[in-house]
Design a protein around this nucleic acid. Sequence first.
DNA 1: CGCGCTGTTGAAACTTGTCAAAGTTTGTGG
DNA 2: CCACAAACTTTGACAAGTTTCAACAGCGCG
Lengths: 259, 259
Amino acid sequence: MPPISASDRVHLELIKTACSNCNLRELCLPLGLKKEELAKFDDLVSTRKRIMRGDHLYHTDQSFDSIYAVRSGFFKTCVLDEAGREQVTGLHMTGELLGLDGISTETHSCNAVALVDSEVCTIPFSHLEDLSREIHTLQKHFHKVMSREIIRDHGVMLLLGTMRAEERLAAFLLNLSQRFTARGYSPAEFNLRMTRVEIGSYLGLKLETVSRAFSHFQESGLIEVQHKHIRILDIPGLKKLMVHQQPHNVRKSCRRGFL
Amino acid sequence: MPPISASDRVHLELIKTACSNCNLRELCLPLGLKKEELAKFDDLVSTRKRIMRGDHLYHTDQSFDSIYAVRSGFFKTCVLDEAGREQVTGLHMTGELLGLDGISTETHSCNAVALVDSEVCTIPFSHLEDLSREIHTLQKHFHKVMSREIIRDHGVMLLLGTMRAEERLAAFLLNLSQRFTARGYSPAEFNLRMTRVEIGSYLGLKLETVSRAFSHFQESGLIEVQHKHIRILDIPGLKKLMVHQQPHNVRKSCRRGFL
DNA sequence: CGCGCTGTTGAAACTTGTCAAAGTTTGTGG
DNA sequence: CCACAAACTTTGACAAGTTTCAACAGCGCG
């Protein structure tokens, strides 16, 4: 929690808060807006917020009024059950939207935690609804974003429901790789921002299993692991793992992509 | 596939298609609409469709233009991976919306299959978007429905990621019970519309495991099973299973509900 | 009436989880 | 800037849970 200097910084950065000159425009909510529409959108997204590593952007049961776009950094969202078991439901990087879970009950139903020092743009939801009644494109795009989240969730269900440990980790790495690529980073080399426990929680595995799978991938020459730093050496090899590794239930037609 | 009589039936039923006198109004999309708004909504939802048991309402890769409200019957949605493994992503009963997955890419990303003879109301999506720009309440409610779907998905992830077989089945039965109750049916007694394979696919288990869990619940006096007919004898007992059955990782605070 | 589909049950195999110990990294405070 | 503690990771051995394989029972349909 930065105490005094924070407000200074916020002032400084308000200048850049305008979506119209944000380099994430193409990944983020204002995608496809015309110049004058974008100007209206700029008014909507007026505040930016800094979240320090380990801090919550919001908690379960906290009242909902805004969604957030990740401006920089990395977040996890997770739910807890009655027994205190945690399930990581998503890992969110720049340009992605957080908080959609809160719309339904006007109360957040998961926790959003920064995995590194991060910044988010706050989008007051009722304003977004107002504006999306005006701007066709915005309405459409927002619906698509929500729908995309549902599709992503289905991919995770497929992963959790049908894949074995190493397939899950392969799918996870390929998915990260693809998302880093979309953001202009290397597809093959990146730093994990989360711990083995968190990866395990996302993939429905224990940390030891995750660790063993990493080690095994390394032995197989598929990747190089050094703690949180990953270099993927053989993308096709990882992909093959996902299709071939299962024992013997090859049926029917083949369809959807992973994750 | 009903060949000739179908069109007759459709005619007959068009009379009742109006949402304004549909008894599912309170569960379905037009929830909360005023009288005159409801009239507009009636125009939107003009066609109803019959889907016979085992038939698809839509397929993966089919182009998207409408969402559907289940008027009667029971559906599953499922995704297939490259290897042909199926994951059931949802089981949908009356009043629930199908097809939200298609909004994102304007192509469906899962299969929707009727588990019994069913009827759906077709809601052309672009019309829905038009109307929800006019009718505030509709816009808000639609967003809530999508958000609720995301929350449901998180619950399934929690189930798949953290629960053991019997906990999953207990959660599943309690969830069904609750949804039947919301529709005015008995909380304790119902017929499963899906096979053990489908239950297993939804819960990330093999059919044998599902079968064994059913048998075990019966031995424990928690339920009575006769093929697809289920009678729940001990709801609190099932709930206890979900919290107590895990070995020994009780930590932290407790929060979210199941499924 | 029998064939196929669905469901049940048992035994063995396999995958992942659990427990434990030791090694590594990171962050903090001196 | 180093040292130490805490957090994280790796690895092994063993246990537990789930899947696999197989055989059989029940129901429904032609």
